[in-house]
Design a protein around this nucleic acid. Structure first.
Lengths: 258, 258
DNA sequence: ATCATAAGTACGAATAACGAACCAAGTCAA
DNA sequence: TTGACTTGGTTCGTTATTCGTACTTATGAT
């Protein structure tokens, strides 16, 4: 009577359940029922039904009062990874260049205004930086990957995204003002690469170059390395290597479709 | 009127929606609505609601009449991977041993009666075998990983699983009779490793050893290599290397909890 | 002990999902 | 071409399902 009936094509209970599954991120890998309810802003009873359904479906496990993800969630991602030939085509390229560069190489895209790590080189030696893996979300405004991704958008989209993003302060050097950051994005777009210095981790310089072509959904590849005394020379070489890596990735056509 | 009266704690629409998301696997990375409905055995209208909800939530994308997964599904798995420190602790171990062995190393567990690849070494050189990645399902009865996993179960569970599994014929050498396969599983359990020869890919020998301790949820690590003329000697070395790899993985305690 | 928080149960009301029936637009074979 | 078939989309009455309040039962900390 009162309610403008919402889209009959959308299953609201399903959407709520998905929200339950999505709250399990790296920061909170296991939660209690009440915590889920709070974070999804659902009624406790509703969250409970969603969680129990996920348990029954095998995506969550319940030990005591804690709920946590099961390996089965990997199967959901597996379809995407295999369909896009990540194992066969993307990963080798990332590894190859990571080895040449001597640092980890990451492939990332935008996902609901956050940086989503699509793949990451796995070097046997070399510094293991942060324990990021495919599927991880990383900061948007203070990483070279994030800024380069925003630079892949049209200027007005980038502005909107930047303004809606919150700007934490990871380090002393983290720029806090959007007005300071926006020029960096514009610069990145015009010069075709992005550098950040110590804004996410002190002493670490981030490098990123675009992979996607203009108009496509943004995909970038990047790396990071501690600032050394011959940083100037290295920067050139590193960016060039990343550009080649990006070109190789473009050739695989796996980034064509998002 | 009648008695639907199923568990009030389970949200059936949510479960149906999850089923829609789960049908997207490596074999069928993009499907039409009708196809989804057929494979999930849901009414077309029901499947449509589920799919559209997934589109709105950003997990599916619709191009023309085809629906396919978006990278966002990676975010679901990302929580699991980060929580268990796969990037930091598991992957380096797999890579290190893969390099030593000279072949890919895979970590796998059981998921609803199928073999689920948890992680896989990414070698820069060396043979890139099948394009398997984390989250992929691989055959159960004709791979060393699968048989070793079944060997990790109690005998009666293994028997039940084997009997419920279908037995395709990948190669000429694929054993087709459960009565033939069961002894192989028993043998694997008693000797602590499993070998398969050309039952999945002709000329390829599969090796697997357990990682999980008895009673835990089964986790195994394995590798594969083409049969050469010095296979006999290599088998020894390879199994030993895998055992060490398994021991290293046990020490990380990441497989404790599945 | 008390207080606070979490989890489980129950149930009537409200509604959201179901699926049949139908239409329009492709698609393919004859 | 025609005609049979498939697919996607829409509508709509029925009813099963979900919602959320309220109550009760753990668990745990002070």
């Amino acid at each position: 009577m009162t309610k403008p009936e919402q889209d009959r094509n959308i299953s609201s209970s399903f959407a709520k359940g998905l929200a339950v599954l999505a709250v399990f991120d790296a920061a909170t890998p296991s939660m209690t029922l009440a915590e889920i309810a709070r974070r999804t802003r659902q009624d406790r009873a509703t969250a409970r039904r969603g969680a129990l359904t996920l348990v029954q479906a095998g995506y969550l496990r319940q030990q005591g009062r804690m709920l946590s993800l099961t390996p089965r969630v990997l199967a959901l991602a597996g379809g995407f990874l295999q369909a896009n030939q990540f194992g066969r085509r993307v990963q080798p390229i990332l590894n190859q260049h990571a080895r040449k560069i001597g640092a980890e190489v990451s492939l990332a895209t935008l996902d609901q205004g956050r940086v989503l790590l699509l793949a990451q080189s796995t070097t046997e030696h070399g510094p293991i930086t942060y324990g990021f893996t495919a599927g991880a979300h990383i900061p948007l405004v203070h990483t070279s990957l994030g800024r380069m991704l925003m630079a892949c958008l049209a200027q007005e989209e980038a502005v909107a995204l930047l303004e809606s993003a919150d700007i934490p302060q990871h380090t002393e050097q983290s720029r806090r003002d959007a007005a300071e950051i926006l020029p960096q994005i514009t610069k990145a777009r015009s010069q075709g690469y992005c550098l950040t210095d110590s804004e996410f981790e002190p002493g670490i310089i981030g490098y990123a170059v675009p992979v996607s072509r203009p108009g496509q959904t943004p995909v970038v590849v990047g790396s990071s390395a501690p600032r050394g005394r011959d940083t100037g020379r290295n920067t050139e070489a590193l960016l060039q290597a990343l550009q080649i890596c990006a070109a190789d990735l473009r050739q695989t056509n796996v980034v064509e479709d998002l």
